[in-house]
Design a protein around this nucleic acid. Structure first.
Lengths: 216, 216
DNA sequence: GTCTATAAAGCGATAGAC
DNA sequence: GTCTATCGCTTTATAGAC
């Protein structure tokens, strides 16, 4: 892929995060990517073509992001409010805290007010919302979503080894769906990011407590 | 409210559900409601005015749903005779049903594959998503959302009288946020409606279990 | 491949008659 | 209150030079 082409797609990701899929104007994108509108049409045929390629591009990037279990942006989030309030209260606390921490980390990753996180989050939300009206990307979303649920389920299973598989999967599905709902609320400014984070952390505690108590 | 005015708002709900907030064209709405575009501007001033009133209209209609009687799955006649709208709200609603059942019903009502429910759900999701990029309607959404959380919290408190208020509120926020996340997944065809329903029911059980165990 | 310039269409909003 | 007609800006998409 040529440099220009990639520059346009990266610009599209930024514009989509800023204005939404249906808010994307080809002329805005031209300014963002510092090219002419004609070049965009040369590379992507029409506006729909831009969208198709941009959403695939974003999807790829998100896969890489989620798959990389290392540092997301280099900065480890402090999470000062963690304190005592989280999980482990129900006595069935696992002896191995590592999976638990990794679970919290992966689910709280979404709630950071950093440009790149916001961009991916917003773009994903847009992708999902857009699919309601145009099912073209549904298959891709389903696949990505299933992988995401499975990843969370594996960590949950590691935290609560005695819990039945079906219960773990259901918990993972609830947690990921909750994440999406909270993310939407945060991004639309309906709740502050710390609050969304607290609620997410609380849900992890509740789900783990339930899985643990079943095991005990 | 005049007949025309209501017809326009009903049309707006349909168009928003079909094409999204940003897909709503005033001319489309005119066709849908069988009026001229000028009449729409006469009644609602501008496009944003349409959106604002449509949001209030949809919110009202959802409230009526909440208060209405009948089994999820369709005991009620659609469309007509909403006249004696039991203006919902926890205080005004029938006290005959036990809180746990009412809680389940209110949270599961969203997951019915009926045109009007789908319409309401889609429109709400759209408005929320739209607010990410255009905060114009944020205040209205915040107010409606807070009322919704409070309603759920009140029912939760009735089920678990001994639970501390903060825990109840947090649970209500998680349940409503989860509902939104699941609703989005359902509407975009990522999960079947029965599955969304099962997950929602499971979450209610988990949250109540947690609140109850704290009380015990 | 990339640009400038412009055609063509879409869309929000208003004027004025009835 | 409701319509028809239209204005003016925005946005998509193409033509043609380099």
């Amino acid at each position: 892929m040529s440099d220009r082409r990639r520059a346009i797609l990266e610009g599209a990701a930024r514009v989509i995060a800023r204005r939404g899929v249906r808010g994307l104007r080809v002329s805005d994108l031209a300014v963002e990517a510092d090219v002419s509108t004609a070049l965009i049409y040369y590379h992507f045929k029409d506006r729909t073509g831009i969208l198709r390629h941009a959403l695939a591009f974003i999807s790829d990037r998100a896969d890489r992001y989620t798959g990389a279990t290392g540092e997301p942006g280099g900065a480890d989030e402090p999470g000062a409010a963690t304190g005592s309030g989280t999980a482990a209260g129900v006595g069935a606390a696992p002896p191995t805290m590592e999976p638990h921490r990794r679970l919290e980390r992966i689910l709280l990753l979404e709630f950071q007010d950093l440009p790149e996180v916001r961009e991916n989050s917003t773009a994903w939300g847009e992708l999902r919302a857009h699919t309601i009206f145009d099912p073209e990307l549904r298959d891709e979303l389903t696949t990505a979503g299933a992988a995401w649920v499975e990843e969370v389920a594996d960590l949950l299973a590691a935290v609560c080894p005695a819990a039945p598989g079906a219960a773990v999967t259901a918990a993972a599905e609830r947690l990921t769906a909750l994440l999406e709902g909270l993310s939407s609320r945060w991004l639309s400014g309906l709740v502050p990011v710390e609050h969304a984070r607290d609620l997410m952390r609380g849900a992890i505690g509740v789900e783990i407590g339930r899985l643990g108590s079943r095991a005990a």
